[in-house]
Every structure is written in structure tokens, then in C-alpha cells.
Design a protein around this nucleic acid. Structure first.
Length: 507
RNA sequence: GCGCCGCUAGCUCAAUUGGCAGAGCAACUGACUCUUAAUCAGUAGGUUGGAGGUUCGAUUCCUCCGCGGCGCACCA
């Protein structure tokens, strides 16, 4: 362990305090972030202006009576130069005594070195926060994936590209908000703790409200509440927030994930497709400057319009027969011919979904809308005009990844109630992901909901695409992991040893 | 959940068929007033993820456990 290093630095903290230097002061008057300093550098250097910069000391190169270092702040890095005859012996010794990882504030005049690097020649140095734990190695960075996820702070310190991903994520979300706000959508918030969950096929997390003596669910989607808001008269609403699904985790699933859901009155799923295309094109433009995005070995072109691909049409083409004419048994035989394993007891729709997911979706690289799903798979969608076997629904797919789900929303309360009842039957038959009857939602629809288009977008997955990330864990700051064991004991031990250790001379 | 792979110093990685556990960076001591992966000389640092077992001897072989990664199954 790093016990010796940490102990030595803790001793430094104590020694500084003994000398009347506070190792954790309350602030520092910064005049320039490093990017601002860099932008203005020539001018500041020419006028020999005194600047004050602050950041983490990330490199230190001593040369006897002169030293270089780099400090890093939110804007990047800047080189600093200290020399004994400029600072005085005490201040220079203080600089040499700093450790990599310390936060420092530094006052001085900008200049350009012989090698052409922008540098601040320090005239005063202050410690702003002592680092007692060694930061990861500067050259190889921090590679161990487990440590990177568990200690994201260390990952962010060591790996600058990680920071870029999360900046991109923030810019994506802000771009989506701007896009929707500009079109008259208003952002609302709906409950995360819900007495009845709904809006998707998934098992929920359960929690408990003690005062009410009742179990609650963490929402699996925002859908049913947002449509209640549409019933209430808001015509364009959206919410960006966390949903929670009690399912397995892999490169495209985290138990909690961020979803954008939006609903627009008087719109249908065709309108939602056009909205989504434009929204993504704008986001791509803002993040990458263009409409093509590099993902793995692919170039994804976001220029609208995207191809529309019929869900059942593609399967029929593959199966060599019209799968809409088949019952569950027929679908099962078709799946078997295609070499797709099916879940025992699954209905026709579910089997078609299994065929699609395995045989077609992985090949959908360029942004594509998969449209018109079987009714059975979509209890909250309206039937397709002209074909009662289908619903008006689409899923945008890119690089083989589903990034959303949308439909012309079911607004007939009787039909919705029938769909819920069918789900109840599936539930009784053992399908844990079947949807739950929500009588209050039916009551809301009974007041009348205008024809409405709805769209859900997986923000994490879109971020993956736009940042060329292979796993969802790379776009979530603190992805879900099993709890770390034995973390607290060693720390307690450490403290204990430190306090009663005087006579033992450990090491 | 099941299968395969991994876990060695603070970080990144080595270690022949089972035979004294090593290097670079970081750390520590010293030299060096424009360096930048600074350089040079030296020093210290390990319960090899944990617990058992086989063996004269285990980082290495076996069993169990923990954590992670990948694949399979379900979803956005």
C-alpha cells in the first residue's frame, strides 16, 4: 500500500501547520484560468502583467536553484517556472517541498521560454490544498478499468480524454434542451418514486416509504406521467431524468440510466421521426462540427432523412414468407429455420422481436428508423392506419444500438384498458416484465388526451455514439459496480496505527 | 444467472519446466539556474486479491471465495 507515502505527506501537513501555514486555506483570488491566460498570453507577457493562476501540480522538474512544473486547471495546463533568486530561499524551498497532486496558487509574470513554451515566472506561491495520496502515474495513466470506474476522480486526474467525454455529454444534453425549448417544449419533472410503475417492459427496483408504510417503485420510465401532463393541457413537454431497471448490466445497460422523453400534442410518430432526425443532426453538428460521426470503424451520417425500415417487412424478407400471417407456432418455426433461439412460451410478437434483435438490428449501422412493430409488443401505441396488425411505432438504431423508442400514443381509454388487461394476463402467466394496470392513467385518458406523438431517447447511448465510446460505463461518471469490500477496514487500521505508532518505528 | 479470461510495489508492466519477486514512473537522499516522459548518482518500497490444499519449496499446480473484463440470456 501507499502507507509510507501517505504517512509522510500527513506529516508534512502537520509540519506546515506547525510553521503557521494552513494546508487547506479557504480560497484564492485567481485572475486567469489557464485557457484564458493562454488566449491573452502575448499581450500579458508584453505588458509584464502579474497574473494569479491556480491548479493541481501535475509535473515538477527540479534543476537545483531553478525548477519547472506544470499546473492543471479546468482550462488545461500551464508551465510554471521558479528560481531561488526570484522567490527567495524560503519560498523556493517551499516549492520544492510541494508534492505532485497538490493544489497551488501561483502569482507571477507570463513569459515564453527558450523552447517556446508559455510559462508563468512565479513570484509568490501558496498551497491551496495538500494532496496526501499519490496521483496516478503521468505517462501510462490509469488503465485498470475497475479502479477507473470505482475511483473516477483518479481516472479524471490521469486521463484527459475521459474529461472530454463528459464535457461532450453535457453539451449534448444542453443541445437537446436548446432544441426543444426553441420549439415550444417545456421541461417538467415527474415522480421517480411511484406507487405503480409503467411505460416499459422491465422489472422495477422496490423501495419503501416508512411514514406512509407503503412500498414504492423507482420509475422504469416517465411515460405515463408525462402523458397525464398532456391530458392536463400542456401540448409540448419533456423530461430528462434517470430511469431504473432491475435487470442485467452489459456494455449498453446500466441499472440507472438517463432518458429524454418528450410528448407533442396533435403529432404522430412521423412527426416524431422528423423531430428526432433534426434534433440529432443539430446535436452532431454542435459536438463534432459536422453531420458525420466516427464510431468504431464506421462513419455514421446523421443527415436527414434517415431510412425507414419496416420491422416485420425485414423479417418477412429474411424468412421468405409474410410473418404477419403466422401464429406463434409459425413464428417459432421461422425462427428455428433462421437459427434463432426463442424463449419458451413466447408469443408471436416476442419471437419476431428475438429474430429482429439477433438477425437484423446488429447490421443497422447508419442511423435508421425501424418502424411499425407488431401490436403485441406495444400496448401503449396506437394501431397503424391501414394495417390493424401493426402499431405506429419506431425505434431509432445506429451502429447496431437502439437509442430510442417512439409511437403515436394510444389515447383511447377503452382500448388502453384492454391492453393493460392483456398485460395482466401475461403477468399471471409468469412474465415479470409485463406491464401493470394503472387505473389512474386510464382515468386520465377518460378525460380525453389529444392525439399525441411521444419519443424516448437513451441519453447514455446517444452519448456513446457521439463520443465513440464502446461501453455505456465510459459515458456514466459512476457506473454501477458491486460494492467495494474491505475499503473501510484498512483505513481504520491506518488511522489506528498512526495514532499509537510512535514507539514502533514501522517500516 | 452460466462460460472463458484476469487480479504481482502508489501507477504501468515483467518473472524460464514449481526454485532467492524485478523494471520504468512516482517516493526518499544528493548534484544541477530555460527544463518538459529533464538528466546523473544512490536508497527504500511486496501478506503476488483472500482462504485452504498439493509439495522440501507455490506468483506459478488444485479447490473455494471476492472483485473486474469479455461472451451468452433480457432491455433503452
Amino acid at each position: 500500500m501507499s502507507r509510507r507515502i501517505i504517512e509522510r505527506r500527513r506529516e508534512k501537513v502537520a509540519a506546515l501547520r506547525a510553521r503557521g501555514i494552513e494546508p487547506y486555506p479557504h480560497g484564492y483570488g485567481v485572475t486567469h484560468r489557464t485557457d484564458a491566460l493562454r488566449a491573452d498570453f502575448e499581450d500579458l507577457a508584453a505588458r509584464e502583467s502579474v497574473v494569479r493562476v491556480a491548479g493541481r501540480l501535475v509535473a515538477q522538474r527540479g534543476h537545483g536553484k531553478a525548477s519547472f512544473g506544470h499546473i492543471e486547471d479546468g482550462g488545461g495546463r500551464i508551465q510554471v517556472y521558479c528560481r531561488e533568486d526570484g522567490l527567495g530561499a524560503d519560498a523556493y524551498a517551499f516549492f520544492l517541498d510541494l508534492d505532485l497532486g497538490d493544489f497551488v496558487g501561483l502569482e507571477g509574470v507570463p513569459f515564453v521560454t527558450r523552447t517556446g513554451e508559455m510559462t508563468v515566472r512565479a513570484s509568490r506561491i501558496e498551497l491551496l490544498a495538500k494532496s496526501v495520496r499519490p496521483i496516478p502515474e503521468k505517462w501510462h495513466g490509469l488503465k485498470d478499468v475497475e479502479t477507473r470506474y470505482r475511483q473516477r476522480y483518479a481516472d479524471l486526474i490521469a486521463n484527459p480524454e475521459v474529461r472530454r467525454v463528459f464535457v461532450a455529454r453535457a453539451r449534448l444534453v444542453s443541445s437537446l434542451r436548446r432544441f426543444l425549448d426553441a420549439r415550444g417544449f417545456i421541461e417538467v419533472e415527474t415522480p421517480i418514486l411511484q406507487p405503480i410503475y409503467g411505460g416499459a417492459f422491465a422489472r422495477p427496483f422496490t423501495t419503501r416509504h416508512e411514514a406512509l408504510d407503503t412500498d414504492l417503485y423507482l420509475r422504469i420510465s416517465d411515460e405515463l406521467y408525462l402523458k397525464r401532463v398532456i391530458v392536463g393541457g400542456f401540448e409540448r413537454v419533456y423530461e430528462i431524468g434517470k430511469d431504473f431497471r432491475n435487470e442485467g448490466m452489459d456494455r449498453s445497460h446500466n441499472p440507472e440510466f438517463t432518458q429524454l422523453e418528450l410528448y407533442q400534442a396533435y403529432a404522430d410518430y412521423g412527426d416524431m421521426m422528423r423531430l428526432f432526425e433534426e434534433m440529432m443532426a443539430e446535436a452532431a453538428r454542435e459536438l463534432t462540427g459536422g453531420l458525420t460521426v466516427r464510431y468504431a470503424e464506421h462513419e455514421l451520417d446523421f443527415s436527414p432523412p434517415w431510412p425507414r425500415l419496416s420491422f416485420t417487412g425485414e423479417i418477412s424478407r429474411l424468412a421468405g414468407e409474410d410473418v404477419l400471417d403466422l401464429d406463434a407456432e409459425g413464428c417459432r418455426r421461422a425462427a428455428a429455420r433462421l437459427g434463432v433461439e426463442t424463449t419458451p412460451g413466447a408469443g408471436a410478437g416476442r419471437i419476431l422481436d428475438e429474430i429482429f434483435s439477433e438477425k437484423i438490428q446488429p447490421g443497422l449501422i447508419r442511423p435508421t428508423f425501424v418502424v411499425d412493430h407488431p401490436r403485441e409488443l406495444s400496448p401503449l401505441a396506437k394501431v397503424k392506419r391501414g394495417d390493424a396488425r401493426l402499431v405506429e411505432r419506431f425505434e431509432p438504431v445506429m451502429a447496431g444500438l437502439e437509442v430510442g423508442n417512439a409511437f403515436s400514443e394510444q389515447n383511447d381509454p377503452e382500448e388502453q384498458a384492454r391492453q393493460f388487461e392483456r398485460q395482466q394476463e401475461l403477468r399471471r402467466a409468469g412474465d415479470l416484465e409485463a406491464q401493470v394496470m394503472d387505473r389512474d392513467y386510464i382515468r386520465a385518458l377518460e378525460y380525453g388526451m389529444p392525439p399525441t406523438g411521444g419519443l424516448g431517447v437513451g441519453i447514455d447511448r446517444v452519448t456513446m455514439i457521439l463520443t465513440d465510446s464502446r461501453t455505456i460505463r465510459d459515458v456514466i461518471l459512476f457506473p454501477h459496480l458491486r460494492p467495494e469490500e474491505g475499503l473501510e477496514d484498512p483505513d481504520a487500521e491506518e488511522d489506528e496505527e498512526q495514532s499509537d505508532d510512535e514507539g514502533k518505528g514501522k517500516g
